[in-house]
Simulated assay, not measured.
Amino acid sequence: MSTIGELLRQWRHRRRLSQLDLALAADVSARHVSLVETGKSNPSADMVLRLAKQLDVPLRERNRLLLAAGFAPRYAERPLDGDALSAARDAVGRVLRAHEPYPALVLDRRWNIAMTNRAVDPFLADVAPELLRPPINMLRLGLDPRGLAPRLVNLDDVRAVLRSRITRQLATAPDAELTALYEELLVPDSTDTPSRPAESDIVIPMIFRFDGRELRLFSTITTFGTPMDITLDEVAIESYYPADPETVAYFTKVDQDQHG
Rank of each mutant, 00 (worst) to 15 (best):
S2M: 04
G5R: 10
L7N: 11
L7G: 09
L7Y: 05
W11R: 12
R12P: 02
R12G: 05
H13I: 07
Q19R: 14
D21G: 07
A23V: 05
V33Y: 01
S34M: 09
S34Y: 01
E37Y: 02
K40G: 04
S41I: 01
P43M: 01
D46M: 05
M47C: 05
L51D: 06
A52L: 12
A52C: 10
K53S: 13
L55K: 13
P58E: 11
L59G: 11
L59K: 06
R62F: 00
R64T: 15
G70M: 00
G70C: 01
Y75K: 03
D81V: 07
G82Q: 08
A88L: 08
A91T: 14
V92D: 07
G93K: 01
P103W: 00
A104S: 10
L105A: 07
V106S: 09
L107N: 04
L107Y: 04
R118D: 14
A119G: 14
P122G: 08
A125T: 15
A128M: 05
P129N: 09
P129D: 12
L131T: 06
L131A: 10
M138P: 00
G142C: 07
D144K: 02
R151F: 04
N154C: 08
L155M: 06
D157K: 13
V158I: 15
A160G: 11
V161Q: 14
T167P: 04
Q169L: 14
L170Q: 06
L170G: 06
A171Q: 06
A171E: 10
A176V: 15
E177S: 11
E177P: 00
T179E: 13
T179G: 08
A180C: 10
Y182G: 07
E183N: 08
E183Q: 09
L185N: 10
L185M: 12
T191N: 05
T191H: 12
S195E: 15
R196M: 05
A198E: 12
V203D: 04
V203Y: 03
I204K: 02
P205G: 04
M206F: 12
I207N: 09
R209Q: 13
F210Y: 03
R213V: 08
F218P: 12
F218V: 15
T220N: 11
T220R: 02
I221D: 06
P227V: 07
P227S: 03
M228C: 05
T231W: 03
E234C: 02
V235M: 05
V235I: 15
E238I: 02
Y241D: 08
A243S: 13
P245K: 04
V248C: 08
V248T: 14
F251I: 14
F251C: 14
K253N: 05
D255S: 10
Q256K: 12
